[in-house]
Write a protein that binds this DNA or RNA. Sequence first.
DNA 1: TAGATTGTTAATCGATTAACAATC
DNA 2: TAGATTGTTAATCGATTAACAATC
Lengths: 213, 213
Amino acid sequence: MTKPRPKISKATVTRLAFYLRELQQMQRSGLANIQSKAIAERLGLNDSQVRRDISCLGTVGQRGVGYRVQELIESIQRVLGTDRTWNVILVGVGNLGRALSGYRGFEQQGFHLVGAFDSDSKKIGTSIGSLEIQRLDDLSSFCQSHQIDLAILAVPADAAQGVVREIENAGIPGILNFAPIAVQATSKRTIIQEVDLAIELQRLAFGVVPKAQ
Amino acid sequence: MTKPRPKISKATVTRLAFYLRELQQMQRSGLANIQSKAIAERLGLNDSQVRRDISCLGTVGQRGVGYRVQELIESIQRVLGTDRTWNVILVGVGNLGRALSGYRGFEQQGFHLVGAFDSDSKKIGTSIGSLEIQRLDDLSSFCQSHQIDLAILAVPADAAQGVVREIENAGIPGILNFAPIAVQATSKRTIIQEVDLAIELQRLAFGVVPKAQ
DNA sequence: TAGATTGTTAATCGATTAACAATC
DNA sequence: TAGATTGTTAATCGATTAACAATC
């Protein structure tokens, strides 16, 4: 008789992750309770929206008082799935990949980097952080001996589609794609999340331009 | 008698940037014409939506034929504001900042990194790529002698809000914020675009979880 | 209790999509 | 011309917000 998970839109998921980030900050500074209005103000949102998003969690606040920070953190993590550790591999150890591998924020949210792969034979065997870079060809066998949840893809555009197939064949269900090209999954079950830092700058540029007119 | 710029939603802006990325790929492979249906398929969108987004550009296609790739590229860049070079500075040269500074994708889309700043005296004077890291205190004077359009903020969470004020005081109208905390602009004219790589992984994790049930 | 804030409904707002006349 | 694809309207769909009863 588990309550069916309510349908949560992608927009809500993204906001929940932002709430989580703020709540973690608040917790670090010793705050135990918080109101929807305060969360909304910090993030520039409407307080109705915050309450509605939170209502998807199942967790409830206390009328007249607000929410318990610790409780909210835990229930957001439960819904996002980050109440456990996720094993992640990095595919493509170029400039960006190397940077991503050292990014602390991943580990802090429970994403544990357990392998790094590249196709450049000059890189194989060299180390990146505490990991040794492995041949892309060894991806599949590595995944048979390790339970891998997600892959971070940071290869050049023209290699991306081929590597996606290898990642899928290795049975990894989610790909964070930094390659600057749209890639297609073969299986409908594979989830691909696009990230493009240059596109983020372009979105910002668009916001700035009208002011210059 | 300039035509008033049509209202373009943020969702449309983001998609236009993705169209641009694909169109640039297509152009590299020698494609001169493209149809809304083909763009939509590549990106997993509806072709009506693609045509509607493109109609915001002013540029028109040819019925029965499609759009000219070169023309679309130029008009998307014009609307996003990337038909010119943007001068960008990096504030915060930690692990992530260092990585971002070497990222080729920025330069390719017309974002030119012209300065790097940090508050750690041990880093001042050392180089990052072709740039010499400057004191954060020198940000303001640097901006007086250089026309800076955007700042990439990659400092720790607890320093972020203070640095945002300095960036605003230096007259920079747009900030790409990688610091894992919500920051407030003092001026309403300042545009802040949030990017959080850990949040992208969380969004992906949420997408993957239901499959495991 | 009185004051405050949640949880939720109903109204509003905006974005997506189907459909098709226009036209290359 | 016949076939194809755009540009745009109208319908649908979904997300946001205002408002307020419930209740701590």
